[in-house]
Design a protein around this nucleic acid. Structure first.
Length: 291
RNA sequence: GCAGGGAUAGUGAAGCGGUCAAACACGGGUGACUGUAAAUCAUCUGGCUCAGCCUUCGGGGGUUCGAAUCCCUCUCCCUGCA
């Protein structure tokens, strides 16, 4: 019992895409003898580098990063798998007397750690593929037949499939993990658009097109992991539809929409300390450490 | 110059006498979401003192109980003949 509550110290840094999480995390990790765990559903895949703004080799040399490149796009990582691996690494880092920093923008992955989600119902790829052929109506009918209540998003095929897989079992959500501080980075709405546009232009410069082409050639256009902003937009272009200009514009728009979704996810989290400068974090961490 | 076709909400595009504030797509806003989550889904998107009212379908004028839809005319755009 006691052992459970003496969890190691953990600092989480969350926020929308292009909010500066990575560079802040880097600074803090250097400052507080830390290591970084990327809580990101796309940087876990090898080969998806430019489009995911994966930390560079130099950054990784400055501070050890974890859960980057742990799989390939054809071997999907789920929230549950991510959680298991992250737990182990957090313990490992703490065991070596260092401070783990959980950094990322994938809300579900972050929360799975912060609130120690219990997941129910293993996903069976075969069965899932079969279910994916069904329409929303058919999936709802199926749930009805098996006496399983509809999920909250009852028109969402993915959630319907999941509901079938878990047979309606609901995972548990616990209170915030002990010894944990959660920081959220805010972005000036005025600057958001410019920042994202610049970032996307930058990715194009770095060869995003070639990276995308290589990935699609290797794993196919249907590969779920490649249904990612920054890659999917190239598909029509590779079929000679539209210009590169349009691809870039679409990536920017989709990224903006994604950032919005991230905001609505994190906004609900009352445990987040919203900040916009490193100094604010320093004050909070220092007082926490002195307790 | 003559003969045709067209102008519709932020954009593209339906509608072709009433059920039209006007389909649909895109774009935009808001939200949901515990084993696909950078995914997926819902919802709103002319204005307002919002179960009703007001102003819209290139401009103006008619016909009609009633027009985005019919007629006349003007402006601009595309097509065939000159």
């Amino acid at each position: 019992m006691v052992a459970k509550t003496t969890k190691s110290f953990l600092i989480a840094i969350v926020g929308e895409t292009a909010s500066g999480k990575s560079s802040l995390a880097l600074e803090l990790a250097e400052c507080y003898n830390g290591e970084i765990i990327a809580a990101d559903s796309r940087t876990v895949y090898k080969g998806m580098d430019i489009g995911t703004a994966k930390p560079s080799r130099e950054d990784q040399a400055r501070v050890p990063h974890h859960l980057l490149d742990i799989s390939t796009p054809d071997m999907p990582i789920s929230a549950a798998i991510f959680q298991q691996r992250a737990h182990k690494i957090i313990d490992d880092i703490a065991g070596r007397g260092k401070t783990p920093f959980l950094v990322g923008g994938t809300g579900l992955y972050i929360d799975a750690i912060l609130y120690d989600f219990t997941f129910h119902g293993q996903a069976d790829t075969r069965e899932r593929q079969a279910l994916q052929q069904l329409s929303v109506d058919e999936l709802q009918q199926r749930l009805h037949d098996e006496n399983i209540p509809l999920p909250q998003n009852y028109k969402n095929p993915r959630h319907l499939i999941r509901q079938l897989e878990t047979r309606g079992m609901h995972g548990e959500r616990h209170t915030l993990r002990p010894n944990t501080m959660v920081f959220g980075l805010t972005v000036d709405p005025e600057k958001r658009k410019v920042r994202i546009a610049e970032r996307v232009a930058d990715m194009m410069q770095q060869g995003l097109k070639e990276e995308a082409r290589r990935l699609f050639n290797t794993y196919g256009e249907q590969c779920p992991a490649l249904q990612t902003i920054g890659y999917q937009e190239f598909v029509p272009y590779f079929h000679d539809i539209g210009t590169l200009e349009e691809v870039q514009q679409r990536i920017v728009r989709h990224t903006l929409a994604y950032a919005r979704r991230q905001r609505t996810w994190f906004r609900r989290n009352k445990d987040i300390h919203w900040i916009c400068k490193k100094e604010e974090v320093d004050v909070l961490i220092t007082t926490e450490l002195n307790k």
